[in-house]
Design a protein around this nucleic acid. Structure first.
Lengths: 202, 202
DNA sequence: AAGCGACTTGATTGATCGTTCAATCAAGCC
DNA sequence: GGCTTGATTGAACGATCAATCAAGTCGCTT
């Protein structure tokens, strides 16, 4: 099995799906960008949808290496890691005139009646992301209120990221992203202050 | 000008774009649902994209009558109105097995390189929504901290709604929506408590 | 050397897409 | 009763799409 051709297809499809979405990307687009011919593509993938599945698997399996590790290099504080991750998305937006956001989120809303397999992969990507945040929140330990539901807050962080990206893209104005992240930061400040009061009371 | 035919097209297109998205809805889909023939559609609209524009204008102009008024009937408290509006989206999700969310958000992420006219309409829809929340926050007066940037918080509410809808749809589990709204509620509780402390200190 | 399986080539298929257009019709006006 | 205008009909068009397939290439095994 010639893994190189397959990999070239997946990489090109990742880019194209991010740029234009799944439906607006034609198989011919993928072929012309990779210099692969249609027969080869269909040798490795039963259909276009299976290319999408491979793309989502690549995101899922590459989150540590391609997203978390770069975003967190040099950042040890678990709370700061959360905002460092958000800042990675900010960079993505800023360097693309607010057109690139979170590819998973875009696909999640673009596909209205996705295959169960595709939907599971989208959910798995969200799940990995949320769990990464969850680990940060666990690592923050007593800096956050004891009673705080850390899993919920992790889901909330994903929510804020996706909503902020959506608005920044729609308005083509990164200010919408920044202000939303600032609001989340203030929420964390409130939580940390609350934990401080708990510590004093104890 | 026969406004009835035009209106039928826009109504059907609103439903179809919500169900299947813009690109997955064919002109033939709209025609078969409306019993209108293609020539009639193209008599009123230069093209499919202009149908989308009309749909977005209908959402923009109908937000008061079709979204805010129903959600707020019987709810006077401005803070409760915010969560009543969120609850309207919850109902939409719950009664559709978590497939229907916010149609504007879906379109905003589906269309990667939208016409400026379409993008402006998407932004105008977000803007109307945000301003409605903003008015509630202004009406809340001293119950919120004096220094609080109410416009920012209004944008944040939209962010949370869109992010929560996205996760609920992807996981096909309304729990994700509920937990995110609960987190926002806790944020408001923290803000209101902070305003209380301000009042006591004064 | 022969055979085999993995992979590549690229023309081709048939379906579907958005859009066009000549025609017909109905209603109102001068 | 001609003329205009607005609206409707539905067949047809060209483009584009995902997908197919027969032919060919290459490397590896026996």
């Amino acid at each position: 099995m010639n893994a190189d051709t397959r990999r070239k297809i997946v990489v090109a499809a990742m880019d194209l799906f991010s740029e234009k979405g799944f439906q607006s990307t034609s198989v011919a687009d993928i072929l012309s960008r990779t210099q692969v011919h249609s027969g080869s593509l269909y040798h490795f993938f039963p259909g276009k949808q299976d290319v999408l599945a491979a793309v989502l698997e690549a995101y899922r399996d590459g989150i540590e290496e391609w997203l978390l590790a770069p975003a967190w290099s040099g950042v040890e504080d678990p709370v700061e890691r959360i905002f460092a991750l958000l800042n990675a998305y900010r960079t993505l937006l800023a360097t693309s005139d607010c057109t690139y956001g979170c590819p998973i989120g875009s696909l999640a809303l673009e596909l209205h009646e996705p295959d169960p397999a595709i939907r599971d992969l989208l959910a798995a990507n969200f799940e990995n992301w949320t769990q990464a945040i969850h680990r940060c929140l666990e690592a923050a330990g007593e800096r956050l209120p004891a009673a705080l539901d850390r899993r919920r807050l992790a889901e909330f962080v994903l929510t804020v990221m996706e909503g902020a990206v959506m608005q920044a893209r729609t308005y083509r104005d990164i200010g919408y992203f920044d202000r939303n992240v600032a609001m989340l930061r203030e929420h964390f400040d409130l939580l940390i202050r609350e934990a401080d009061r708990e510590a004093v009371a104890a």
